[in-house]
Design a protein around this nucleic acid. Structure first.
Lengths: 337, 337
DNA sequence: CTGAAAGCGCTTACAG
DNA sequence: CTGAAAGCGCTTACAG
């Protein structure tokens, strides 16, 4: 009955009939229940029996069927991603997130879907577990999810819940320090409206780095680049046209950095010769040769999913801050003025 | 046992108990077998029954259990999305695609993943079925997939394979005709390098519309906006600065339209009073109030998945061109000069 | 320590 | 066109 044959590379392959628990059970003269216990390393199986079963498994080349296991074990939750009201979605960052989360979650045999936000700021529907993004102070989603007893993790930070985020503060700090080390003292901070945790943290890093170096913070150096390349372009161009003096731009996203560089060049100046520009995120495919702050999106998603599994398992609540680091490429140089 | 309750906005939400085929069967008063047939689009179900079941599915928010399906069906296909070498991925269009495809494919109980391209221009690995994107002439992927006998569908167009695409030509035509109807004769065409089927088609639509109206095609009116808002901005700004005379811009993407509008405004002119601007795609969340050409991304993905299922079923090869239409909003107006 | 049996959610011949 | 029922491979109370 057992249609086993050896494939090209000597690897055991089964054709026609795949080896099941039942085959192993029959071969070792026990019940499928017992084999299952052995396979899963459950306690309470006589050693003699265990060995017999393990041998049979090896001999037949038994491999558990994931689907059957999932079905029986009751796994297979669906996990939803919910973006907060008003947070941008059609941006590279979000796309990356979607991809990594999708991969990570499917690998665990679960489903992934995005859940839109309703007018009341809550998810339109709930899933077995949720990852939420773009939380702000008094975000209604957090009490809601707690109330509904739905396991969730926050990409960001909040008291008393599971969360993970990159060390944005340290990123802002390192970016600015890098520029200062190169001798720059007139450093533009290019960002957007600051009601956003991420950008707020990055800004604080900028402020701290200036303080460390004894450089006074100048209000007019903090520009609104709307988080886009076009916004970055317009802000920086306007600054130059208005005669503002600066030797470096700390852009808080790669997109804005790209815009800044274009503006500088359009105004007849050189990067990094005349003005240095640093980005943030190290977004793949954006800003060729851009000096930037790297963050590990894949890791971010992995940890988020891990935390979610911990939530399912009702393990103690914890959070994580992911390190971030400087990547020096070709858009920053020593200050010449 | 059925733990169903209504959420805040009256939307049906299930807690504890996941919605199964059996629930749907009960709700619609048929057997699980029949529901299964409907879910899988099997022929031989009375229309009345089908509708009843589909409604129940929607109401209960039914989602097939991948594991159960795999177990029962044998293996479960995973479908891969492969973007051609050099095609942009970090753009809104792609994000939308990903979301809709993911939803559509999961609904069918299959798994979805992106498959990166290798250095040779071929997918790094293959999946049971593939959707490919960004094909160019002599794309090696098409003969490869045919050779490997892997069911696939192309988002785009090519001889002898299954494909689907929006009617880009008609879109370019309609956009330009709209402007001409408003009395414009000096119409900029804002696009990018034209080695891309999509943008090539749109350009041809532009050309045809001019011909129809007896307006000569002017080489200098065809601008490279790099498909981005920043590119659109720079191109249009430069045009205005150089003293070029025009009363309308036909941007071949909403992003470029947004850039064009910003440039026009920065140069002290008004949209649409001085210059009309039309976009393309009707991308949600991009370009508030923008007159544009709408295309149905969800439909595009639905049809793609449908064609793929036909490929699995070895049905005759066919293709589809999706209609596209004009949406008049507030950025185009009658020509005043 | 071990077996018999129910059940996970779905599909698919097989009868009507 | 539709239902009842068997079966996919596994896990897990429940009895011994």
């Amino acid at each position: 009955m057992e249609e086993l044959k050896r494939g090209g590379m000597g690897k055991l392959m089964n054709s026609e009939h795949k080896v099941t628990l039942e085959d192993v059970a029959r071969a070792s003269g026990v019940s499928t229940g017992t084999v299952s216990r052995v396979v899963n390393g459950r306690a309470g199986v006589h050693d003699t029996t265990r060995v017999k079963v393990l041998n049979a498994m090896r001999e037949l080349g038994y491999l558990a069927d994931i689907a059957a296991r999932e079905l029986s074990f009751g796994k297979n939750a669906t996990i939803g991603l919910n973006v907060g009201m008003g947070s941008p979605r059609l941006i590279p960052f979000f796309l990356l997130l979607l991809e990594y989360l999708n991969a990570e979650i499917q690998e665990g045999g679960q489903r992934f879907m995005e859940v839109p936000s309703g007018r009341n700021g809550l998810p339109e529907w709930t899933t077995d577990g949720m990852i939420i993004l773009g939380a702000h102070d008094d975000d209604p989603r957090i009490p809601f999810l707690i109330e509904e007893d739905i396991p969730f993790v926050l990409l960001g930070r909040a008291e008393g819940v599971r969360w993970v985020m990159p060390d944005d503060y340290d990123g802002g700090l390192q970016a600015t320090r890098h520029l200062i080390r190169l001798g720059h003292r007139e450093i533009l901070h290019l960002s957007g409206i600051m009601n956003n945790q991420t950008y707020h943290d990055r800004y604080n890093g900028y402020v701290t780095a200036l303080e460390e170096a004894g450089i006074p913070l100048r209000r007019e150096y903090v520009l609104d680049g709307e988080f886009t390349s076009l916004g970055g372009y317009r802000a920086v161009r306007k600054a130059i046209e208005s005669g503002m003096k600066f030797t470096a731009v700390a852009a808080m996203s790669d997109e804005m950095a790209v815009g800044a560089i274009a503006a500088i060049q359009d105004m007849g100046l050189q990067v990094p010769t005349d003005i240095s520009v640093i980005g943030f995120d190290d977004m793949p495919g954006i800003g060729e040769g851009l000096t930037t702050i790297h963050q590990d999106f894949e890791k971010l998603c992995k940890v988020a999913v891990e935390l979610l599994r911990e939530a399912f398992a009702k393990e103690p609540i914890r959070h994580d801050v992911l390190p971030i680091y400087l990547i020096t490429r070709r858009t920053t140089a020593r200050c010449r003025s």
